Computed example of a mutant assay.
Amino acid sequence: MGDSFHDQLIEDSAFLRADRRLDTDLVDKIILQLNRIYPQILSDKEATRFRNLDVPTSVRVGELLTHLQRKGEEACREFYRALHLHVEEVYYSLPTRLRLRDSLDPLAHPRAYQQRYVMNDRGPFFFLGCFGVAVGMALLYYYGEARVTGGSRALGMAALGLKKKAREVLIWYTEM
């Protein structure tokens, strides 16, 4: 990944403080998970302080993030794990997640793939010209054959895979 979880949390802190999707209930779930599963990261006393409803949620999130950054790499990783578990849409919209996703997505940065497969560089009019010549030659061949034989052998061959009525019509046409 390159960045440590601590560095990522520093970068994501401003986004997390401003994101309105982190409401009181979600912040409480994250705090409780960190407190119950990892009491060495968030003690009961600290969890109670961060769950104080008299303090606005954005302030509590900011204090929690500062606390986790002071605790170190393991605390930051567990915060990301709890965020991913409880609020996936916020987790996947974090600036560090978006940067990581874009760096792994080949469609987001096509310049990383220098090799392009170009059939020609003459443009669409060249293609249309070639297509017109091919259609003209096919029509000349088809109508030239129709005058000589009185019908098309290709239509007779095409009748082989069709149902009875269609086969009869095509065979009748080729016999004319």
Rank of each mutant, 00 (worst) to 15 (best):
G72F: 09
Q69H: 06
Q33M: 14
H67Q: 08
D44H: 09
L83G: 09
L34G: 02
I31W: 02
L83D: 03
G62L: 03
Y80Q: 04
V87R: 14
E78N: 08
L42K: 09
Y80G: 00
E89D: 14
L32E: 09
V27T: 11
L34R: 00
E89H: 07
P39F: 01
T66A: 12
L64P: 13
V90W: 03
L32V: 07
A82L: 01
F50C: 06
L85N: 05
L64E: 08
L64A: 07
V27G: 04
R81L: 07
H84C: 05
T66L: 05
V87P: 01
E73R: 08
E78Y: 13
Y38S: 12
N35K: 10
G62Q: 05
K29I: 10
A47L: 14
L68I: 13
R77L: 07
G72I: 14
V90L: 15
G62W: 00
V59H: 12
L65I: 15
R70P: 00
I31G: 00
Q33S: 15
A75H: 05
E46I: 05
L85W: 13
I30P: 00
C76V: 04
H67V: 02
I41N: 13
I41M: 10
I30N: 00
Q33I: 06
L26Q: 11
C76M: 08
S43I: 03
R60F: 00
Q33G: 10
V55T: 05
K45T: 12
L53T: 13
Q40L: 06
V61M: 06
D28L: 04
R60T: 00
C76P: 01
K45L: 11
R77E: 15
Q40D: 11
V61W: 02
T66M: 10
L42D: 04
R51P: 07
L68Y: 02
I37M: 10
A47E: 04
E78D: 13
L42W: 10
R60D: 00
V87A: 07
L26W: 15
N52L: 09
D44S: 15
V87M: 05
T66V: 03
D28Q: 10
L68G: 02
H84A: 07
I30F: 05
N52T: 06
Q69C: 04
R60Y: 02
T57Y: 03
F50A: 08
P39M: 07
Y38T: 09
L34D: 02
R49P: 06
L64H: 02
F79P: 00
P39E: 13
L32C: 11
D44Q: 13
I37Y: 03
T48N: 03
H86K: 13
